[in-house]
Amino acid sequence: MSSKTMRLNLKIWRQKGPKANGKMVDYTLNEVNPEMSFLEMMDVLNQQLVERGDEPVAFDHDCREGICGMCSMFINGRAHGPMTGTTTCQLHMRHFNDGDTIVIEPWRASAFPVIKDLMVDRSAFDRIIQAGGYISVNTGSAPDANALPIPKENADMAFDAATCIGCGACVATCKNASAMLFVGAKVSQLSLLPQGQPEREERAIRMVEQMDKEGFGNCTNTGACEVECPKGISIENIARMNREYLRAKLVQK
C-alpha cells in the first residue's frame, strides 16, 4: 500500500444544461490518495469547488459498489476508464500516476442527451425494457418454483446475460452508439428460460423496434461493447438476439 499522494491535471466536460454549449475545463488536484476511488477523487474536487464558491461537477452515481449502473464517465477515451470489468465507482486511483492528465467526458450518444456536465439521460433504456423486456405474469399466479426444472447450463447462461447493469457503457463506446449488447442481454436472458417462451417472438421484435426508434445505431461487429462492459456481457448475446429476431420474423403470424 503506497501512501504517496499524486497531483493530477483534470480536463472535465462542463455543460450547464441540456441546451447549453459545453466545453472542457482544466482543474488541478493535489494530494490525491492512491487508495481513493475515482468518484472519491471527484468528491474531493467538488468539495474544493464548493469551498471556493464555484459550481461542483454534476455526475451520476449511487451505490458505489458497481451494481446500480448509475455512474457513467468516459475517462481518457474509455467508458468507465482504463480497467476492464470495472465501473467508474470501482476504479481506484492506484491505477493512475502522479502528474497524469485525465480527460473526463459524459457518455456521448444522440440517444443519451446530456442533462448537465457528466450526467446523461438514459431513459431510452427504460423504454426498451417497457417494450417487452419482461415475462407477463401477474402477482399471485405463479406455479411452485420447482415445478419446472431448468438445466443448470441454461440457468447459468441466463444469469450471465441478466447481470447487465444498464449503465450504457456499450452504447458510449460503440462508434455507432449501438445498444445491441444491452438489448441482446435481456432478449437472451428471457429466451433461454422456459418461462420466457410464450412471448419469445413478440418480445424480440418489439424490443428491437423500440431500440431503433430511440435512435441507437446498428451493430458492425467491432466488439468494443464486450470489451468495455463492466459485467463482461458477451457479444454472443447480440448474435442470439439477431437469431431470435430473424426467427420471430419468420414465424410471425
Binding site: G140, N146, A155, F159
Partner: peptide, 22 residues
C-alpha cells in the same frame, strides 16, 4: 414461499443444481 414462486415465474435466474432444481 410465494415470493420465490413469483420471482422464478418472472425469469429471475436463481442458482440451480445439476438436476435443474433450485
Amino acid at each position: 414461499v410465494n415470493i420465490i414462486d413469483q420471482c422464478v415465474a418472472q425469469g429471475v435466474p436463481f442458482a440451480r443444481e445439476y438436476g435443474g432444481l433450485l
